[in-house]
Simulated scan of single mutants.
Amino acid sequence: MTGRRRWTTEEILDTAAELLRAGDAETFSVRKLAAALGTDSSSLYRHFRNKTELLRAVADRILVAAMDGYRPEGDWKQRITAVALRLREAFGRHPQLAAVWGRYASGGTGSRLVMEEILQALRTSGLPEADIPARYHRVVVLTAALIAAEGGFGTLTPEEYEQGMEQFRVAVLGADPERFPALAHFARSVQPLGADRLAAFEEILAAQLARIEATIP
C-alpha cells in the first residue's frame, strides 16, 4: 500500500499562500489547507504548531522576498524609506497577505532582516542608544498599519471598487451644506481613501522620520 506523500515546508507554504490569495486569514484554516494538499491536518502540525504560526511563516516569506537584493544606500532616512517602500511593493503583489502581516506579524528570517536594517539605520542617525528601540517600534507600527490598510483596497474586486466609489460620490457630493458645511465646501476636492496611496504613504512616513530627526541632539 502506497503511503501518503510527505509535503515539504516550502510546498505547504506555497499552497497556503495560494489559498490566502483566493480568500483571507479569517476563512483560511489548516483543514482547508490539508484538503488542498490531499492530506490530513495532523500531517501539517508536524511542520507548524497552529494556524497562527503557519500564517506568520507565509507572511515572513514576503519579507524575505522584499529584502532580497537590498543594499543600504544613502542616509538613515533614505535607508528606512527604501525598506518601507520595498515592503509596500512586495505586499502590494499579495494584498491578502498584507492583512496577515499586520495582524500576526512575523518572527522568521524576513522579520529579522527588516528589523536589523531599520535598527542599523537608526544607529547611524545620531539618536541616543536608549531612544532607538522606541523609535524603531513607531516606524514599524506605522509602516505595517499603512501596508495593511492598502492591502484592504488591493483585495477589492472591480465591482466592489465601483460600488464604493459611487457611495463615496453620493456621500460627498450629496452632503447637506447646512449640516456638513466643511464637507460641502471641499466636496469637489476631497479624494476617496484609495486615491494617490503611494504619495500618502511616502508623506506620512517622511513626517514620522522628521519627528525622529527633530529629537536628535
Rank of each mutant, 00 (worst) to 15 (best):
V141Y: 00
A182C: 07
T8N: 04
A184Q: 07
D131A: 15
R21G: 13
A182H: 07
A16R: 12
A99Y: 07
A16M: 10
V190Q: 03
M165W: 02
T124C: 11
T52Y: 10
L122A: 12
A144R: 15
G23F: 03
R138W: 02
R179A: 09
R135L: 00
V114C: 03
H94G: 10
A59C: 13
A59H: 12
A148Q: 06
P192N: 04
R211S: 09
A187K: 01
L54C: 12
T15C: 13
A187I: 00
G38A: 12
Q208M: 12
Q167Y: 01
R61E: 14
L113P: 07
A90T: 07
F153Q: 01
G110A: 06
H137D: 05
E162H: 00
G110V: 06
D131F: 02
L127D: 14
A84S: 08
G110C: 07
A36R: 13
E117H: 06
S189P: 04
E178F: 00
S111E: 13
F168C: 03
A90F: 01
H94N: 15
R135I: 00
D196A: 03
V172T: 12
L122W: 07
E159N: 05
E166M: 08
A145F: 00
F186C: 07
A200P: 04
E129Y: 01
T2Q: 09
P217H: 08
A22R: 14
A145E: 09
R71Q: 14
S125I: 09
W101M: 09
S111A: 15
V141W: 00
S29R: 03
S43G: 10
S111K: 08
R197A: 03
F91Q: 05
E203G: 15
R6F: 02
P95V: 10
L19K: 09
A207P: 08
I212E: 05
V58L: 09
A105L: 15
R56G: 15
A145C: 05
L44E: 07
N50I: 10
Q208N: 12
S29Q: 06
A199N: 10
I80E: 01
V172I: 14
D14N: 15
A121Y: 06
A199R: 05
G164P: 04
